[in-house]
Nucleic acid binder design. Sequence first.
DNA 1: TCATAGATATAACCTGCCTTTATAACAGAT
DNA 2: ATCTGTTATAAAGGCAGGTTATATCTATGA
Lengths: 297, 297
Amino acid sequence: MNMELYKSFYYTAKYGNISKASEHLYITQPAVSRSIKQLEEELKCPLFFRTSKGVILTPEGEILYQYVDQAFSFITTGEKKISDVKNLLYGEIRIGVSDTLCKHYLIPHLKLFNTLHPAIKIHVICPTTPGIINLLKSGKIDFGIINLPYNDEQLNFKSIMEVQDCFVTGQKYKSLSRKAQPLSTIIQHPLLLLEKNSNSRLFIDQYFKTNSVSVIPDFELGNIDLLVQFAKYDFGIACVIKNFVEEELEKGRLFEVKPIEKIPSRHIGVTWLKNVPLSPAAKEMISNLEYFETTEF
Amino acid sequence: MNMELYKSFYYTAKYGNISKASEHLYITQPAVSRSIKQLEEELKCPLFFRTSKGVILTPEGEILYQYVDQAFSFITTGEKKISDVKNLLYGEIRIGVSDTLCKHYLIPHLKLFNTLHPAIKIHVICPTTPGIINLLKSGKIDFGIINLPYNDEQLNFKSIMEVQDCFVTGQKYKSLSRKAQPLSTIIQHPLLLLEKNSNSRLFIDQYFKTNSVSVIPDFELGNIDLLVQFAKYDFGIACVIKNFVEEELEKGRLFEVKPIEKIPSRHIGVTWLKNVPLSPAAKEMISNLEYFETTEF
DNA sequence: TCATAGATATAACCTGCCTTTATAACAGAT
DNA sequence: ATCTGTTATAAAGGCAGGTTATATCTATGA
């Protein structure tokens, strides 16, 4: 059954007038006239009484119209929703992000995004980096926020923030912060590092390796907040992202222990599937991420 | 927006596979492929992820599909309803008919029709003959059942039963029933006739006029049942339709007074608008009417 | 690693349907 | 009687959309 015929039927029924319908359809009257005739033939059923003032639905036409009318309003709302999606008036974004980045980077940003686009629903899930990659590839999230570098053929990456790792400590080892220390000195103190499954830990391990030191941390913790807490309570020297502890350093609650061998800076990035187009909402959020300033503790 | 595109979209989404969709649409795969592309262009929005195993709806496509799916099932049920109407599995019939014809002719027929077509709703309205004509012309009823003859350019008529008027009486005037009486004798007794607004009354008045008698009835009643009751209670001689009082005559509760001047037979007929096609259900009922036997009191 | 199967995309061609044009027929209204 | 607005009909023509042929991609299995 040709759906185009129903378009003629719909407008003709709506206006009770084939000529009016043809105007709204931007085609000529005979075209509509014939479409209706064709529909009537295919349904084997007259749908309109023809009069000299227009047309009137037959009882059968009336019945059909009830359904066709509904059908068309569904199509129309469907199209409206799609246009809303494009205009960020409707939609949802699913984000995968680690605990730390969620707290220190994403949350403040989400707050802004939400005030700009209140109709967009946002889901956040906080697994490890490999978990994020899996969720991405199985289509469960739109994009992930991870620590770079990361290599994957199927993924796009975009740096959204440059971060600098650093060593921090509490009162007990404050003296070390007076001047830069050789890495070999630093590692003689108790060390607080992230757990082995994190990308950040891989990065810092690489740094130790590059500088030919072998490290066995005294504590391996799940996120930066815990590292900071342990450092404050003088359990040792923690390796954390400096950008996220600036306030603690300024207010003298933590002290930076600078190694002579500089830790290279690295990047936080957003990543998404190459072969899958992003939704307009996700695109919008990603494009905003890079311009956004992180906040402190 | 071209509705045909949604047909391709619908089947492709349903089967997650453009090739499968093309089979169901009885067109080739590139045709469907292009239709979808066109729809995506018109909505300015990708609707499917293409994979090597088929296609998967994008989030926007998913949203659209919810609406399109609904729309299509409305169209489908609409078409189903129309087919039901044709097969007398759905529909309604609105009938205009006088009290008397309703009781003695129509009701028994409706009972049969209803057992044959239980899904058809039937509305009966019982106005006078002019009322029936008005309802017809204003589209409020599908057909009327009236006493013929009746003349109207806009109407079709079809005789469905031949009826014979007759004079009947109770015990009091029983003696008149022994042999045929001259009309002049009959009218010297109290007469019971229908009210002046009825077609039947016009007919019998015409009969009196033809036979050059002038009649002033003692009672003018609204329907045949009342005439029969009054006759039984010896109020006089009633003029009624013989077909509807056969049982009363047989059982000796009424007696026929035969006039020498025979009353011409007349017809009950069904009438409907010329320029408006009848619904299948109405057509079916009308075609059955003529074959149906009337019942007695 | 290569070949295969099954999916979609692309390009060119061409056909048939649908639109347009032009006209008739009809009903009300002026 | 004429004019206006309605639908129906017939003929002609153009283009939307279908077909054919081919490319490309990706899993899958030998």
